[in-house]
Design a protein around this nucleic acid. Structure first.
Length: 520
RNA sequence: GCUGGGUUCGUAUAACGGUUAGUACUCAAGAUUCUCAAUCUUGCAAUAGGAGUUCGAUUCUCCUACCCAGUACCA
């Protein structure tokens, strides 16, 4: 019988979601939608010490910006749901609000002999670890060391009972089976085997705060929420054996999800996984949206605020560790849903390349209509105090859009189409603004002022060129002198483009201006 | 250290065991243009190393090297 596809993205609200996390969410979403299944957003906030205010809201907003909407979860229907209803059959979706359900599962494992109570203090454990380290070893809490620790397997029944009732800093630990090979399958990596003797008795539940650890909460919730595939980061691969064993201990093997462990996103240069620091150092965002640390007030830039289109960001992220099997690179979210396949997900970590990210944005900028881009550019102009007609902006956008990566580039590229050049590039002045050139250029300017033909680019251009060529003047030098007057540098649009855009009066003003400024 | 995972141009990646090892980004050169972009063309550049299996390994096996992750009462 076919099981309904149900996947979850289960972040911990300990800070802003970074781009690696967004990619994990994206792959989950693509997988679910392709199979016609559900994408669930669950918040794993079982660590009360690391909770960061605003992080959960940030995660939801970031996913929304990317066009990823959960079918079920804390954000479904735009509100927090605590009582199960038709659309939220497994509510609540925040683990801190489900804390009451975990203890019974932990106790069930103890009753089955698959777990036990442990009374070791933090100091006990620290010293055991320090002891092992002195011998060049790593302390593993398992069958080898278990008898020497304070737990319900080493202590007598009465003291266990007494400690259970009269102390509150005990835990429930999983009893790792002896010398057993756990055989696992990963959708990306294939078959994996691990011997249990290398694993330790993980804490599942803590009496001190009556909260489960990740491992217990994760397995219980995935089971209860009928998750069919767990798609998560590679950092979880080492605990996969534990999770397999937990499903077995509970007797849930039949409905155990399949697992896919995604490789990590690596920093652009050097080794290691992508971190916030790399972004600051190399000048690119690692977060989808801007984030302000509530404690320090420190701001981290975001792709949205940097001017990336969400479609470009999502597309770029999808291609980091996955490919469609052919040469296509540009995909909308819907097209990604169609094309995605777990078989094509890369095993190795992918180094993030900020240059390629920009390339994606440039491609998406070109896909936008001139009207859309005009709408985006006008607010920027208003901020600069530019008051001009929408029609004029539209004309400018049409001419310059291919030169830009971001909408914000428009101003840098085309400010001279809105304001008189404030200064003239020294190098270009030295190169072109020589008497033998500018005397000719001023005559050419005179020709333009007296031009009576149709006021459009092609006509003016051919008339002007005919005039200059007819006089056998050096075209490049004359044109660049004019450009200096119009742009302030020897770069930018064609002379006829600029002149027809800004008009004859403005043209004359700029010629006067350069003559005055460079004191001809 | 131990355990697990990984390794194709600088980067992202393609290649039923048989290709001159392809594509994109970056970079360089040329074409074009009144300049700068854009565009087009061309170029640079890779199977980590070593054994083995095979008529034939990028592809399968083993060893080595290197990289990554985990090694918490964090997720």
């Amino acid at each position: 019988m076919e099981r309904r596809t149900r996947v979850r993205f289960a972040p911990s609200p300990t800070g802003p979601l970074h781009m690696g996390g967004v990619r994990t969410a994206l792959y989950n979403y693509l997988y679910a939608k392709q199979k016609g299944g559900d994408f669930i957003l669950r918040i794993e906030d079982t660590d009360s010490h690391r909770f960061v205010p605003g992080a959960e809201e940030y995660i939801i907003e970031a996913l929304r910006w990317c066009g990823i909407y959960p079918d079920e979860g804390v954000d479904a229907a735009g509100k927090i749901v605590q009582i199960p209803d038709e659309r939220h059959p497994h509510a609540p979706y925040r683990q801190s609000e489900r804390k009451d359900i975990y203890r019974q599962y932990a106790e069930e494992l103890v009753a089955k002999g698959a777990a036990y109570y442990a009374f070791d203090s933090a100091q006990d454990l620290d010293s055991a670890r320090a002891q092992a380290e002195m011998h060049g070893q790593t302390f593993i809490y398992n069958r080898a060391t278990r008898p020497g620790m304070r737990n319900s397997l080493s202590l007598d029944e009465d003291s266990v009972k007494d400690l259970l009732e009269n102390t509150t800093d005990w835990t429930i630990r999983f009893k790792m089976p002896e010398n057993t090979v756990v055989k696992m399958d990963d959708m990306i990596r294939g078959h994996i085997e691990v011997n249990t003797d290398t694993l330790d008795d993980k804490v599942l539940w803590k009496r001190a705060d009556c909260l489960p650890t990740y491992h217990l909460a994760n397995i219980v919730d995935d089971h209860l929420m009928e998750i069919s595939e767990v798609i998560r980061g590679e950092e979880w691969l080492p605990s996969l054996p534990l999770h397999y064993l937990l499903y077995q201990a509970f007797g849930w093997e039949d409905t155990m999800p399949r697992f896919a462990h995604l490789s990590l996103l690596l920093k652009p240069v050097g080794n290691g996984k992508l971190s916030k620091r790399d972004g600051d150092k190399l000048g690119f965002p690692v977060f989808p949206l801007e984030w302000t640390n509530p404690e320090t007030g420190e701001k981290s830039r975001g792709y949205r605020e940097d001017g990336y289109f969400p479609e470009a960001f999502v597309n770029m992220l999808a291609m980091l560790g996955w490919n469609p099997g052919d040469d296509r690179e540009l995909f909308s979210l819907d097209e990604l849903v169609q094309a995605f396949s777990m078989e094509k997900v890369q095993k190795a970590g992918a180094k993030f390349n900020p240059e390629k990210a920009k390339w994606f944005n440039k491609e998406y900028l070109r896909k936008k209509t001139d009207e859309e881009l005009t709408d985006l550019f006008i607010p920027i102009l208003e901020e600069k105090g530019i008051d001009t007609s929408r029609d004029y902006v539209l004309k400018v956008v049409t001419l310059i859009k291919e030169r830009a990566t971001f909408v914000a580039d428009f101003w840098d590229i085309a400010s001279y189409l809105f304001v008189v050049p404030q200064e003239y590039n020294e190098k270009d002045v030295a190169k072109f603004w020589k008497p033998e050139n500018y005397t000719l250029a001023l005559q050419a300017a005179g020709f333009i002022k007296g031009y009576n033909g149709p006021w459009e680019k092609e006509a003016l251009e051919s008339a002007l060129e005919e005039f200059i060529r007819g006089n056998e003047w050096p075209m490049g030098k004359v044109m660049n002198c004019l450009r200096l007057a119009l742009v302030g540098a020897s770069s930018g649009l064609g002379i006829a483009d600029i002149v027809t855009l800004i008009g004859k009066d403005e043209f004359a003003r700029r010629i006067d201006n350069i003559v005055k400024t460079l004191s001809v």
